[in-house]
Amino acid sequence: MALLEVRDLTKDFGGLRAVNRCSFTVEQGSITALIGPNGAGKTTVFNLITGLLRPTSGRIYFQGRDITAMPPHRITRLGIARTFQITRELAELTVLENVVVHAARDGLAGLIRGSILQHEAERAMALLDFVGLAAMAREKAGKLSYGQRKLMELAGALMAEPRLILLDEPAAGVNPALLEEILERILQLNRSGMTFLIIEHNMDVVMNLSHQVVVMAHGEVICQGPPEAIQQDPRVLDAYLGAA
């Protein structure tokens, strides 16, 4: 059974069909890349998976469970974390708070406990250390550079103890040194068993990182396969270079 299965997913915005009968799977332990030209509907698929948008039709299964149209916080609690294409940091909160906000909690009683519990602080600091931001823990998140915000979002996603992490263009707008850092962390996490679904435009990154590639164009999945096969596929070349 695939960790994530998207079946016949369709999303209309008024008269515009942004996602059209999309089906693909993400295998446990894999790094799956979701690629395609701008406007192909990749981010919309992310928003559908994470519950920020409700599909017009189609189903999404996570660990065999139907998560279609669940509220986003429940989907996160079930084990899907994500980062955003344009980072959404909580600018007035500290970096540490930005990470701790993702921590799991138990019901109503959890709400009246201290804002940052000792074990949460320790875990968050370990994660910030992992992404190289430990020294910035007490700074306002708004002070971070763009690349650092991406790393902070990754630490936040990890704080939620997910089984699947969706990364929306982790490489975009990041300087080469920091990009190296981000990719290294993703590989490291994957080696320890974490599954990733990644939207990426940088083909070097896609080819080096991913085990599986899902190609979208005009809201449809046009093919899915290992990166070597995808590179040769005429449909893919068509989607990127063709007149359509």
Binding site: L52, T76, L90, A91, L93, V101, H102, S115, I116
Partner: peptide, 22 residues
Amino acid sequence: HSKLGLFLRAIAMDEIKAEVAG
């Protein structure tokens, strides 16, 4: 100074981010 307070402040800053954070 509680979790609720942290969450409310997160909501004030970016509700979608807060929701996706769980």
